[in-house]
Measured scan of single mutants.
Amino acid sequence: ITIHVNGVTYHFDNPEEAEKFAQKMAKTYQLKMEIHNGEFHME
Score class of each variant (00 low, 15 high):
32 K>S: 13
24 K>L: 13
1 I>K: 04
17 E>T: 08
22 A>M: 07
34 E>F: 13
39 E>Y: 06
29 Y>W: 02
19 E>G: 07
42 M>Y: 07
35 I>T: 04
41 H>C: 15
27 K>V: 10
15 P>M: 13
14 N>Y: 06
27 K>R: 06
34 E>W: 10
2 T>W: 13
16 E>I: 11
2 T>L: 11
16 E>P: 03
37 N>G: 06
21 F>Q: 00
27 K>T: 06
5 V>Q: 01
22 A>N: 02
32 K>T: 14
23 Q>K: 08
40 F>T: 05
14 N>V: 10
15 P>C: 15
7 G>F: 15
8 V>H: 08
16 E>D: 11
25 M>R: 00
19 E>K: 10
15 P>Y: 12
37 N>Y: 11
41 H>D: 03
1 I>D: 01
25 M>E: 01
4 H>P: 01
27 K>N: 05
14 N>D: 10
7 G>R: 07
23 Q>Y: 10
6 N>T: 07
37 N>R: 02
40 F>E: 03
3 I>E: 00
17 E>N: 05
26 A>N: 06
41 H>N: 03
5 V>L: 05
40 F>L: 12
40 F>V: 10
20 K>T: 08
25 M>H: 01
7 G>K: 09
26 A>M: 12
33 M>R: 00
42 M>N: 04
21 F>L: 01
22 A>R: 06
38 G>H: 05
28 T>A: 12
42 M>C: 14
23 Q>T: 11
5 V>F: 10
26 A>H: 06
28 T>W: 15
20 K>C: 15
31 L>I: 12
39 E>D: 06
24 K>Q: 10
33 M>C: 15
1 I>Q: 05
5 V>C: 14
36 H>K: 12
5 V>A: 05
29 Y>M: 12
4 H>A: 04
32 K>V: 14
18 A>H: 00
7 G>L: 14
17 E>I: 09
10 Y>R: 03
42 M>A: 06
41 H>S: 04
25 M>L: 11
23 Q>R: 09
42 M>V: 05
5 V>R: 01
42 M>H: 03
9 T>E: 06
7 G>W: 14
15 P>L: 12
39 E>F: 05
38 G>A: 03
12 F>K: 00
19 E>R: 10
26 A>Y: 13
9 T>K: 14
11 H>I: 08
14 N>L: 11
33 M>G: 01
10 Y>G: 00
16 E>G: 08
13 D>A: 10
1 I>F: 08
30 Q>L: 04
26 A>F: 07
34 E>C: 15
11 H>D: 04
29 Y>F: 06
32 K>W: 13
35 I>M: 05
22 A>P: 00
9 T>N: 07
32 K>L: 13
11 H>P: 02
6 N>E: 12
31 L>T: 10
19 E>V: 13
43 E>L: 13
10 Y>C: 14
6 N>G: 10
13 D>W: 11
32 K>R: 03
12 F>A: 00
9 T>I: 11
41 H>I: 08
25 M>C: 13
3 I>S: 00
2 T>N: 11
26 A>L: 11
18 A>Q: 01
10 Y>A: 02
18 A>P: 00
38 G>Q: 02
19 E>T: 11
33 M>D: 02
24 K>I: 13
19 E>F: 13
20 K>W: 06
30 Q>C: 15
43 E>H: 13
18 A>Y: 03
16 E>K: 10
34 E>G: 03
23 Q>H: 06
14 N>S: 07
16 E>A: 07
43 E>Y: 14
11 H>W: 11
5 V>P: 00
10 Y>I: 12
38 G>Y: 03
35 I>V: 07
1 I>E: 01
40 F>K: 03
33 M>T: 02
18 A>K: 02
20 K>F: 09
18 A>G: 07
6 N>S: 08
9 T>L: 10
33 M>S: 02
26 A>V: 03
33 M>H: 01
28 T>H: 14
1 I>T: 04
14 N>T: 07
27 K>W: 08
4 H>Y: 10
32 K>Q: 13
15 P>A: 11
39 E>L: 02
34 E>P: 00
42 M>F: 09
25 M>S: 01
15 P>H: 08
2 T>S: 08
3 I>M: 02
8 V>P: 00
30 Q>G: 13
4 H>S: 03
13 D>H: 09
30 Q>R: 03
10 Y>D: 00
24 K>A: 08
14 N>F: 09
3 I>T: 01
18 A>R: 02
36 H>L: 09
19 E>C: 15
39 E>S: 03
31 L>S: 08
11 H>M: 06
23 Q>A: 08
26 A>S: 07
36 H>W: 08
10 Y>K: 04
36 H>Q: 04
21 F>V: 01
30 Q>P: 15
28 T>L: 15
40 F>G: 04
21 F>T: 00
3 I>H: 01
13 D>P: 10
25 M>V: 05
38 G>P: 03
4 H>Q: 04
30 Q>K: 11
7 G>A: 07
16 E>V: 09
29 Y>I: 14
8 V>T: 09
6 N>P: 01
20 K>V: 09
10 Y>N: 01
5 V>K: 00
28 T>F: 15
6 N>M: 14
11 H>V: 07
24 K>D: 11
12 F>W: 02
1 I>P: 02
8 V>I: 11
27 K>Y: 09
16 E>F: 11
39 E>P: 03
14 N>C: 11
7 G>Q: 08
33 M>V: 13
14 N>M: 07
41 H>R: 04
29 Y>P: 15
17 E>D: 09
37 N>M: 07
31 L>E: 15
35 I>D: 03
38 G>N: 04
27 K>P: 15
20 K>Y: 08
33 M>F: 07
30 Q>H: 14
29 Y>L: 13
28 T>C: 15
17 E>V: 08
6 N>C: 15
41 H>A: 02
31 L>P: 15
3 I>G: 04
14 N>H: 06
3 I>W: 02
41 H>Q: 02
40 F>W: 14
43 E>G: 08
34 E>V: 14
9 T>C: 15
42 M>E: 02
22 A>G: 01
8 V>R: 12
43 E>W: 14
21 F>D: 00
42 M>G: 03
20 K>R: 07
3 I>A: 02
36 H>T: 05
